[in-house]
């Protein structure tokens, strides 16, 4: 197991009380596996990613749990050890390729800087390795692109550069936080293919954060569904998408725009997610759930296997 998160809870201090952004989440990622994390805005996907990288803001505190990376808990590491992990072991790709690159440094120099750090090469060789890495993310004229500044590149090109930077070490785990949301559909597809290919060739695991269940269906072997800082369902992608158990997952799938009929209105889930400062005692989804029982208001359902004999599909719901 490459990454094993257990009972992780994160809170943010704020004027109006603590925001409980993550509540006892547990999941794991195997070597070479692509795992999707889906959930609506504010469900804690980015917080999960930043916690793994040790990059939470100063007002955050980790109130419980452990994050084992290759068997070592990153939460008890000192700053230096966490620093050594970033880039080298765990890379990250962000949603906004337009602003993720140093605005006044040439692409080739940015790559050389990161490569020098991880592979201890002299500048010239690091620069050449950078050009090679641009070719590996399918940039056609890598020498030319290396001499350009970020503002001279399109969004898709920049995202390729960011991927090249994140994969420079190369890391064993890549966290991709909505890497294609800001891109055109055709470019989106190319970037997804590229990431799939890099994962397959190098055995890199990818934690793939997205809003888009279509992307999950295409890329991910397993999927984790988050709601209001909790995992409500997880399992093999085909099981979860074809036989969703949790009402929230079902609503998400129902909310998928039907590609065959683009005129059909997007089915939004009515209601709002709960205030993370005052988490409900019972099920977090109860306020929006059509199937809610009286029990749901009082007692929190645990993440349990959906069927006794099936240990790969879990859901947190009293009704099943």
């Amino acid at each position: 197991m490459l990454l094993d998160i257990k009972e992780l809870s994160v809170e943010f201090a704020s004027m109006q009380g603590n925001v409980k952004a993550l509540q006892n989440i547990s999941f794991s990622i195997e070597k070479g596996e692509i795992v999707g994390i889906v959930g609506e805005s504010g469900s804690g996907k980015s917080v999960t990613a930043l916690t793994i990288l040790g990059l939470l803001e100063k007002n955050a505190s980790i109130t419980s749990g452990s994050i084992l990376y290759k068997g070592r808990d990153v939460l008890v590491m000192d700053k230096r050890e966490q620093q050594a992990l970033r880039g080298k072991e765990i890379g990250m790709v962000f949603q906004e390729p337009m602003t993720a690159l140093h605005p006044t440094m040439k692409i080739g120099d940015q790559l050389a800087e990161v490569i020098k750090r991880h592979r201890k090469l002299p500048h010239k060789e690091a620069y050449q390795a950078g050009i090679k890495s641009l070719a590996e993310v399918h940039i056609h004229d890598p020498e030319l692109v290396a001499r350009k500044y970020p503002f001279e590149l399109s969004g898709g090109m920049r995202q390729r550069v960011v991927i090249a930077l994140a994969m420079a070490a190369p890391p064993d785990l890549l966290i991709a936080d909505e890497p294609t949301t800001a891109l055109d559909v055709t470019i989106q597809y190319e970037i997804l293919k590229l990431m799939e290919e890099l994962s397959a060739n190098r055995g890199t695991s990818i934690m793939f954060i997205t809003h888009d269940l279509g992307v999950v269906a295409q890329m991910c072997k397993r999927v984790i569904v988050m709601y209001a800082g909790e995992i409500v369902e997880q399992g093999e992608t085909h099981q979860v998408l074809q036989h969703p158990v949790h009402p929230y997952t079902r609503a998400l799938i129902g909310a998928l725009p039907d590609l065959a009929d683009p005129d059909e209105p997007l089915l939004a889930i009515p209601g709002e997610s709960p205030d993370l400062r005052r988490r409900p005692a019972g099920c977090v989804f109860a306020s929006r759930c059509a199937q809610a029982l009286p029990l749901c208001q009082e007692e929190r359902p645990g993440l349990e296997p959906v069927q006794q004999q099936n240990e790969s599909h879990y859901a947190a719901c009293w009704v099943r």
Binding site: Q83, R86, K88, F94, L101, E113, V114, R117, A166
Partner: peptide, 9 residues
């Protein structure tokens, strides 16, 4: 922030 995740000191 990205530079931090790339491992730059």
């Amino acid at each position: 922030k990205a530079a931090v995740t790339f491992g730059i000191k």
